[in-house]
Amino acid sequence: MNGYLLLITAIVGEVFGSSMLKASNGFKKLLPTLAIIMGYGIAFYTLSLSLKIIPLGMAYAIWSGLGTALTALAGVILYKEGFNSKKFIGLSLIIGGVILLNLGGVH
């Protein structure tokens, strides 16, 4: 399987799991808690598989950077968290950093 497809799956799993943390109310709600376990399970499993193909530095930079940015966006969309110019600039810098790392070839 394509390493980047595995990495995208890992990112989606991590964002899903992270998004469910708030919904779990401190692990007091069963279904969101199970969703967290599932999301992180998928995330770490597929991340580990992607590391057979993609160098660790590159994969982790993409996984953590895009995961952070997408989780912040999920907070804005799902939980109606505020979005302002500072948040936009911060997310843009995270995404820009991931792009620069890829262009720079973190191998």
Rank of each mutant, 00 (worst) to 15 (best):
I36R: 13
L30Y: 15
S64G: 14
G17K: 08
V12E: 05
T46I: 00
G97F: 06
P55S: 12
S50H: 08
L49E: 11
I89N: 05
V15G: 12
M1Y: 14
Y4S: 00
L7Y: 10
F44T: 02
S19E: 10
F16D: 06
L5E: 00
T9M: 12
A74C: 05
L47Q: 04
H107P: 10
G57Y: 08
I8D: 04
S85D: 10
A61C: 08
A72S: 14
N2H: 02
Y45F: 14
G75M: 02
I89D: 02
L56E: 12
G67V: 09
I36P: 12
V76T: 00
L47S: 07
G26W: 10
T71M: 10
S24C: 13
V98Q: 01
V76C: 00
V76H: 01
I53Y: 15
G13L: 01
G26F: 07
M1K: 15
V12C: 09
G3Y: 04
I11E: 12
V15I: 13
F83T: 00
H107W: 14
I53L: 14
Y45M: 11
W63H: 06
V106R: 10
A61V: 13
M38D: 11
L51F: 12
T9Y: 00
V12S: 04
L73K: 03
F27W: 02
G82S: 15
S19C: 07
I36M: 15
